Simulated assay, not measured.
Amino acid sequence: MIKVENISKSFKDTQILHDISFEIKKGDFVAVMGPSGSGKSTLLYSISGMDSISNGKVMFENMNISEMKEEALSEFRLTKMGFVFQNAQMLKNLSIFDNIILPGLVAKNEPANDIRKRASKLMKRMEIEGLEERDIREVSGGQLQRASICRAMINTPEVLFLDEPTGALNSEATEQVLKILADLNREGMTIMTVTHDSCVAAKARKILYIIDGQIAAYKEFLVGENREMEVEKWLKKLS
């Protein structure tokens, strides 16, 4: 689905990413890990077209998105990609429900009523039905993050990009979000997440470990009950 070819990213005189290449197949669940400041988030933003790259190219289903004009790229992200961040990027003057449906209304690819129906189904699935008219400051962090996933899914994207999706959540809310992501991936959703949490990484099938803007290690993990333990062992070897 996504082919990253020798991408580099510089800012002023600082090299952030160095000649990175890898592929994401349809249905993959990829976690990006590494020390703080290693370039994890920059890599995610570069691959998703949220940030420009200095060299190389990013191919999304045989389309070179690194060469797209900003308007075309914005439309591409809106309809093909979903985004979830550590801190929910929601508008304070809108209700939870209106925040969720907003990307669908902006895309204008479907009747508004169909978008509202899908939003209601997503909220029910994420177990936050009944919060539609709440202000974003009137729900818990876990509920708000599940609403963020609903919003990211509203245009039925082909891939979900997440940047530290559980970084601001307690353990119970983290488990809820991880279950949702695992379920979505089992159903075929392609996911790439940046995380420092081995519990999050253990839900992934592939882990990229980034150090100083380069892929220092890569590993695929088999599905199984001991995957969290295997991930922790592998990460200890790298530290």
Rank of each mutant, 00 (worst) to 15 (best):
I191E: 09
G188M: 11
F83W: 00
L181R: 08
T166Y: 07
S140D: 00
T166K: 05
L181T: 07
E127D: 09
L178D: 08
L102P: 00
I136W: 10
S120N: 15
I100K: 10
I191P: 02
K108L: 13
R151D: 03
G141C: 04
S74V: 10
E158Y: 07
E172D: 09
S95L: 01
L178P: 05
A112D: 13
E187G: 05
N87P: 00
A173L: 08
N64H: 13
E67Q: 13
L160Y: 03
K92Q: 07
A173K: 10
L122M: 15
G142A: 10
E70N: 07
L78H: 03
M123Q: 15
K108T: 09
L181M: 13
E129K: 15
M189C: 10
E138Q: 08
K117S: 14
S140T: 01
S140C: 00
D135A: 09
V159W: 11
E129L: 14
R125K: 02
L94V: 08
T156K: 15
K124V: 08
R146A: 06
Q89C: 10
R125P: 00
I180V: 12
L181V: 05
F85A: 12
L73F: 14
V159Q: 05
E172W: 12
A88Y: 10
E70T: 08
P103H: 01
I101H: 02
F76S: 07
L169S: 11
S74F: 08
T190E: 10
S74C: 10
V177M: 08
I128G: 12
L78P: 03
I96A: 05
L73Y: 11
V159A: 11
I100A: 10
A119I: 15
S120V: 15
G130D: 06
E129G: 15
M81R: 01
M153D: 05
N170R: 11
V177A: 04
F83N: 01
N62E: 09
K179I: 03
R118E: 15
K92T: 12
A168W: 08
P157T: 07
S95H: 01
L131I: 01
L184E: 12
M63Y: 06
E127G: 05
M123E: 11
S74L: 05
V177N: 04
D183M: 08
G142P: 02
L162D: 00
T174R: 03
L144G: 09
S66W: 14
P111M: 15
E175I: 03
K80P: 08
L169W: 06
N109W: 02
E75G: 05
M81P: 00
N185L: 03
L184M: 14
E187Q: 12
F85W: 12
P111E: 15
N99Y: 02
E138G: 04
V159M: 10
A119P: 13
Q145A: 02
E175F: 07
S171I: 14
Q143H: 01
N62D: 07
Q86W: 09
V139Q: 03
V84K: 07
I65D: 13
M123L: 14
A112G: 04
K121I: 10
V177Q: 06
N113W: 02
K124D: 07
E75I: 09
L105D: 05
E133D: 00
N155C: 09
D114Q: 15
I96F: 03
R118W: 13
K179N: 07
G130K: 07
M123K: 13
P165S: 12
A147K: 05
L105K: 14
I65L: 13
R125F: 02
A119E: 13
G188C: 12
